[in-house]
């Protein structure tokens, strides 16, 4: 598919990168390049305008509290309308950890309410009690196939989905959104193009199939149209992450 180019916009990559989010971007990049799909990566950071037509996939990772506050304010003021317009067009918005939290209505911590993008019906609160930390595996049902995502979670915020929101998966092992209701992450948008999860570690190296799912969704093709790759090491890393989670 040489005519395809995946244009990725990384939001605040110098701030929201705490759990090696670079690994997620690297998977997208290499797996496109190995297939002859063009790949362009642009950074969009504080105070910069976001062009809703310039990207096929927007990536938002996690950051320290201080940095997340800066980004939340900037998203809500400078970029909210552009992100909403992009998502309406079908651009994939993929948020991990802090990125998941900012997809929703708000994130309440230290008595302060950080505004979210309001793309999906979820709310996050930093509650008293321990951070939710550990290996995690979830069962994900996408395009009629049940598959496993494995990774690591480490979050103080508890996320609760509203009635209008679908979780990305069900927790097999680990805590998930809030440690209580078995839900993990979120998926929504006009064509299931808004995806958020607490799974990092990073997520895509441990689940190369999901990198391909995101690439296909962002390019508007089906997964089966992507050329197969030799995924021997990818499968071994996935198995190793599942073993670590006990699945």
């Amino acid at each position: 598919m040489p005519e395809h180019v995946l244009r990725v916009g990384a939001l605040y990559p110098e701030l929201m990168n705490i759990y090696a989010d670079r690994g997620n971007l690297l998977l997208l990049q290499k797996r496109c390049q190995w297939r002859g799909i063009g790949f362009e990566l642009a950074s969009v950071t504080l105070t910069e305008d976001l062009d809703p037509d310039a990207h096929d996939l927007l990536y938002l990772g996690g950051g320290q509290d201080r940095d997340q506050k800066l980004c939340a304010q900037d998203l809500a003021t400078a970029k909210r309308a552009s992100v909403q317009a992009a998502v309406e067009r079908g651009v994939v918005m993929f948020g991990v950890c802090g990125g998941l939290q900012l997809l929703g209505e708000f994130y309440e911590l230290d008595g302060e309410k950080l505004p979210g993008l309001g793309l999906v019906d979820l709310r996050t609160t930093r509650e008293r009690g321990p951070r939710l930390i550990g290996n995690v595996a979830i069962d994900v049902d996408l395009d009629g196939q049940s598959r496993v995502l494995a990774g690591f979670e480490n979050h103080g915020g508890r996320t609760v989905l509203g009635a209008g929101a679908q979780p990305l998966g069900r927790v097999l092992r680990g805590h998930g959104n809030n440690g209580r209701d078995g839900s993990e992450g979120v998926i929504g948008g006009p064509r299931e193009n808004i995806v958020g999860t607490y799974l990092h570690g990073p997520l895509l190296p441990k689940n190369a199939w999901f990198a391909d799912w995101l690439i296909a969704r962002a390019l508007g093709v089906s997964e089966t149209e992507l050329a197969p790759l030799d995924d021997t090491f990818e499968r071994a890393a996935h198995a190793s992450a599942r073993r670590a989670a006990g699945v």
């Binding site: 759990y19 090696a20 670079r22 690591f152 570690g201 990073p202």
Partner: peptide, 8 residues
């Protein structure tokens, strides 16, 4: 327990 650092 988190090996994500190898990607950094």
């Amino acid at each position: 327990r988190d090996v994500s650092w190898v990607w950094d």
